[in-house]
């Protein structure tokens, strides 16, 4: 009896060691319950629209860069689409796409994707007018005190790489930022982005373009 018990214990121990080795060998990005194969298939799927290495892509609408975004921000936005908190009233088809994309993802897959995209660092997409970059840098660094617009770097980081729920702006597509800031109330109706509403509203068209051009070139 004792021998049998000892034997089964030994088997369990061997199995446990084997499993832990296998787990370590697989990509550590893959969270519990997500295989490397499923994650890669989903990453390819995301990059079909969001561009190679998730650097952003301009389809019918600008499709934002995901690379380098904080994990928390990506998770929040995906949940926002699924729970109908992030609704784009200007472009219902975009909201519909992201709802469909998001609602089939498990929490483990959302986390694995967010971590994967956070770790990517491709060169910016580019294409913004260069002559307004200097004016944009000034707005980013100093804000527009006369219009109660704080310095962007205060929340988004001096290097514009974002932090937690605050998105990275560095390398984001120029037309995407322009569209978001221009139509903030319609594009980003979700509650947790209310903080940006008065700021976006306080910027003029040319200020929006300048600051969008500046951050779009940051690496």
């Amino acid at each position: 009896m004792k021998v049998v018990r000892l034997r089964s214990l030994l088997q369990i121990a061997v199995l446990a060691v084997a499993f832990s080795t296998a787990a370590r060998a697989s990509d550590e990005k893959a969270a519990a319950g997500v295989s490397q194969r499923d994650l890669q298939a989903k990453v390819d799927y995301c990059e079909t629209c969001h561009g190679l290495s998730a650097r952003g892509f301009i389809g019918f609408h600008p499709i934002p860069r995901l690379a380098g975004q904080p994990v928390e921000y990506i998770e929040n936005e995906l949940k926002g689409f699924v729970e109908h908190k992030r609704e784009n009233k200007e472009s219902p088809s975009s909201t519909n796409i992201m709802f469909n994309v998001g609602h089939v993802l498990s929490p483990a897959m959302i986390h694995a994707l967010a971590t994967h995209f956070h770790d990517l660092n491709p060169k910016p997409f580019g294409g913004a007018p260069k002559e307004i970059v200097a004016a944009g840098k000034k707005i980013f660094d100093d804000g527009v005190p006369s219009a109660d617009v704080p310095a962007c770097g205060t929340c988004h980081g001096a290097d514009a790489k974002g932090n937690g729920a605050f998105p990275r702006l560095a390398g984001q597509l120029y037309p995407y930022i322009v569209t978001q800031l221009t139509n903030w109330a319609k594009e980003r109706a979700e509650e947790n982005s209310n903080i940006m509403a008065p700021i976006a509203h306080g910027l003029t068209k040319s200020q929006i373009e300048a600051v969008a051009a500046y951050v779009s070139y940051l690496e």
């Binding site: 298939a41 799927y45 629209c49 019918f60 088809s93 975009s94 519909n96 796409i97 469909n100 994309v101």
Partner: peptide
């Protein structure tokens, strides 16, 4: 319009328009 998210097939509408 919707793609087939479970099979990782994207929605054509994203690039070719509504």
């Amino acid at each position: 319009q919707d793609g087939i998210p479970d099979s990782n097939i994207v929605a054509c509408i994203a690039c070719h328009g509504p």
